[in-house]
Write a protein that binds this DNA or RNA. Sequence first.
DNA 1: ACTTAATTTGTAATCATTACAAAAATGAAT
DNA 2: ATTCATTTTTGTAATGATTACAAATTAAGT
Lengths: 135, 135
Amino acid sequence: MKIYDEHLIRNGIRPSVQRLKIFEFLHKNHNHPTADNIYEALLPAIPTLSKTTVYNTLNRFVDKGLAVVVNIDEHEARYDANTSAHGHFKCISCGGFFDIHFPEPDIKLPKGFQAENYHLNIKGYCKVCNEKKNR
Amino acid sequence: MKIYDEHLIRNGIRPSVQRLKIFEFLHKNHNHPTADNIYEALLPAIPTLSKTTVYNTLNRFVDKGLAVVVNIDEHEARYDANTSAHGHFKCISCGGFFDIHFPEPDIKLPKGFQAENYHLNIKGYCKVCNEKKNR
DNA sequence: ACTTAATTTGTAATCATTACAAAAATGAAT
DNA sequence: ATTCATTTTTGTAATGATTACAAATTAAGT
């Protein structure tokens, strides 16, 4: 996967096997996996993988702006390789995650404040669960 | 504090001393305290207070819609008695918290989705830290 | 007062995340 | 290639917020 390779190098991250696989996984799985999800998924491919490496790597990605932490779940951090401005929806009923695209962050900050990043998290019922509920 | 008393009763929560004090504290301190903040603050007034009670009570408040969890911090939940739609700003530099009032949740959800609550968290630099930074 | 239900408390468990140090891998330079 | 320094990975132990649970206390209703 030369693409991911170069993407990492361009951002000052040496592309080790572990980092590449984690980066690739994040880019191919848009369901906002947890560190543990990633660990379990990659263990067959990298049997020596350590959970610490997953955490270290994810933290590095976030530091370098290659990934974003999604704090929609109370008890665990989730990760998203899509760093463009978008929100997240979690279904209270089935637990599914959905990306929410909002047109413009139409939010006025107080004078002098400077935003570095926005996190919009919405909880509710997805289409399927909502229909199930209203029946 | 008869006001808080009735507020709790109206929402089906029996107003014990502990619950009253925690509710009162949440309403008087708008700085989004953690469970531990509340515990430490009330310990002088209620020397027998247990941290479990603080957690139980806060969870009950949230269940009944009397408070809201603010997940802007990675590692600890914060609580807010202001349940009306508003966002939160955390200063990366000084760690201060600020409420953000946005006019309308101008977010289009996918068809069929139903939102129960919105959480808008913004991180950046507050006025003071921003000026300090640009000097 | 008595009985039952609700609440509070303390301790121990859970679980995600991090600290830390040793082991392994990589890179550069001779 | 061999050595040396640096980076990365790994495993284990620690941390810290939150919850489970059962005993103790308090309140409510009769």
